[in-house]
Write a protein that binds this DNA or RNA. Structure first.
Length: 592
RNA sequence: GGAGCGGUAGUUAAGUUGGUUAUAACGCCGGCCUGUCACGCCGGAGGCCGCGGGUUCGAGUCACGUCCGCUCCGCCA
């Protein structure tokens, strides 16, 4: 029991005091950021989640306090009482509280600290491995404190906005029936049902649709989702979605509602006015101009396709790629700012990971090329220059490959070069809706759902379901921000005849439909409303709005790229007894 | 499943063609100092060079394997 807390209540946070508070008697609590011992006086920076305040321990003011003050070390947790004094002309501009300091009268050391493995400050170059092991210390750093406070603000504002618009916050199960297709699921063994497993929900998709059937009309949930896929800088095995579903809506109504949410977040958190409605761009346009379905519109560079021109180029590599069913994508880079030889020489390394190569030429007077593509036919060259809009001094990059690879590579090159040349405008917020994506993904003749099998095709494309499924576009939309997919959704199918036709196009037999989605199909027999929804990636939104580089900066306890938690050392092996209880036998040839 | 980069005091890094006692900065410990705020000055401690075996008279250094972390491709309906 702390005598200090029995007699004192904190009066201010460490970022609160100003010149006008001079003379006040205050109580502060926090952690020792740093200490500067001058013999007969000690200066301490006291830190809490709100900021820093300089404490003064002075022999003449209070010798007993000074004695304790001399012993204080980094990250000790203390409480003090004292008097606010103006610093006069010796203001510290770096602190919001820099106009004042607190002269300490009494102090209690709540707890001492071992020397931390790294210092608790933003300008830190410590390995992430060490930081993750001591995550509770890393989280003391002001930047992470601020990011997680911003995250909290997002969820608070979201609840407020959706609540004001008559959405109900409802929960759905995490432990669900395993349904194949889509992301890999984490499995949870059932002790009460030996040999059977739950799956951790990769999304509440089906349940939120059933809530629409149940007549709740407007649902949302800020919900954890689980996917057992390989991880990235912007992908964690468990992540949080702002999950939303509405009945009796079309795309326009739903998107407008969501634009209201997003603009509110940016206004209230960053005081930035995002113009709405957001730009709409078709999937086809995005792929053509940017090579990806999530264009970063902060960069004006655009791709173009030069397959036709290259067919008669007499340039064998391109002609072979085209003959094999591939395409040639080109990226024109204007003369200024200059594209250095060093950047160009770095391109092979960059494109290698995409399984592609790229070629480049410098355009000279009269459209003449130098650099690469020796022997390229002149007429084809002139046509490429025309399509690309190339002028003397420009550089043109080429990627010839299968459409998927060529687009991905050229799209990535666009941003790589854009970044190197400073052509990505920092500080802009480029929102857009990506619309009209294909309903199906077709690879090697196999038809799969591009989104999920309950996504509605466009009415005008329904007739193509049986004849040309590859041309059917979906009533789906992604919200894209600065090249990041921050949300996605669709208008769902609510007519069982249409659902049957989509299942048929996917090659899912009657029998399979029943086994996998029987309960949903049954539910749809009982007057389902037309409905649609969207899910936002809360972590990505928080990452972007807080200007963080990694998802790990906006998740309190994130996992590594291999899905482990370095602080708790998880996952772990379990005892034979636990396995026996679950009737699970490990294979003898585990790769460990 | 694949590619690349990294792992040396608490932290961040340097470490030459393989060769005496593995350096530095910050941090830490002790001493001095009343105006610092990246305090200053003096002194000091601190190392399984990720791990394993291999080549060698000799390995932080070379080759191999392995573990861990990061970035990316595939993957993420």
């Amino acid at each position: 029991m702390s005598a200090f807390l029995a007699n004192h209540t904190r009066t201010h946070n460490c970022g609160a005091l100003r010149a006008t508070d001079a003379g006040a008697q205050v109580v502060l609590t926090g952690w020792v950021q740093s200490s500067r011992d001058h013999g007969k006086a000690v200066f301490i920076d006291l830190r809490d989640r709100d900021g820093k305040t300089q404490l003064v321990f002075d022999e003449a003011f209070d010798p007993k306090a000074l004695e304790v003050g001399k012993d204080l070390r980094s990250e000790w947790c203390i409480g003090i009482t004292g008097e606010v004094r103006s610093r006069g002309t010796m203001v510290n501009d770096k602190l919001s509280t820099g106009a004042i300091e607190v002269w300490v009268k009494s102090i209690e050391v709540f707890s001492k600290s071992d020397t931390p493995p790294f210092s608790i400050e933003d300008a830190i170059d410590t390995n992430e491995q060490v930081r993750l092991k001591y995550r509770y210390l890393d989280l003391r750093r002001p930047k992470l404190q601020k990011s997680l406070m911003t995250r909290s603000k997002i969820t608070r504002l979201t609840r407020q906005y959706l609540g004001d618009n008559n959405f109900l916050e409802m929960e759905t199960p995490f432990m669900v029936k395993y349904t194949p297709g889509g992301a890999r699921n984490f499995l949870v063994p059932s002790r009460l049902n030996p040999g059977e497993f739950y799956a951790l929900a990769e999304s509440p998709q089906i349940f939120k649709q059933l809530l629409m059937v149940a007549g709740f009309e407007r649902y949302f949930q800020i919900v954890r989702c689980f996917r057992d896929e390989d991880l990235r800088n912007d992908r964690q095995p468990e992540f949080t979605q702002i999950d939303i579903e509405m009945s009796f809506v079309n795309e326009a109504i739903l998107q407008k509602m969501m634009e209201g949410l997003v603009t509110k977040l940016w206004k209230e958190i960053l005081d930035v006015d995002i113009p709405a409605p957001f730009r709409r761009m078709t999937y086809a346009e995005a792929m053509a101009k940017y090579g990806v379905d999530k264009p970063d519109l902060r960069c004006d560079l655009e791709l173009c396709e030069v397959t036709e021109a290259c067919k008669t180029s007499a340039f064998k590599i391109f002609e072979d790629a085209i003959a094999a069913g591939g395409i040639v994508k080109a990226l024109r880079i204007p003369a200024n700012p200059a594209l250095t030889r060093k950047i160009l020489d770095g391109l092979p390394d960059f494109t290698k990971s995409f399984g592609a190569q790229c070629a480049w030429v410098k355009v000279g007077e009269g459209g003449v090329w130098t650099g690469g593509l020796k022997g390229f036919a002149e007429s084809a060259r002139d046509e490429v220059n025309r399509v690309a809009g190339a002028h003397s001094g420009d550089t043109i990059l080429f990627v010839a490959n299968k459409a998927k690879v060529a687009n991905a590579t050229a799209g990535a090159l666009r941003l790589f070069i854009g970044d190197k040349l400073g052509l990505i405008r920092k500080g802009e917020w480029q929102f857009m809706w990506l619309i009209d994506p294909p309903l199906f993904e077709i690879e090697d003749g196999h038809v799969a759902a591009a989104h999920h099998p309950f996504t509605s095709p466009r009415a005008e494309d329904e007739e193509l379901l049986e004849t040309a499924p590859e041309r059917v576009l979906a009533r789906a939309y992604d919200l894209v921000l600065n090249g990041n997919e921050v949300g996605g959704g669709s208008i769902r199918i609510h007519r069982s005849d249409l659902q049957s036709r989509v299942f048929a196009a996917l090659g899912i037999s009657e029998e399979h439909r029943k086994a996998k989605f029987g309960f949903l199909l049954d539910a749809f027999k009982y007057g389902p409303p037309p409905h649609g929804g969207v899910a936002f990636g809360l972590d990505r939104l928080a990452m972007l709005i807080s200007n963080s580089d990694s998802l790990r900066d906006v998740i309190a306890f994130p996992k590594t790229q291999k899905g482990s938690d370095l602080m708790t050392d998880c996952p772990t092996h379990v005892s034979q007894k636990q396995l026996d209880e679950l009737f699970i036998q490990l294979k003898p040839d585990l790769p460990i």
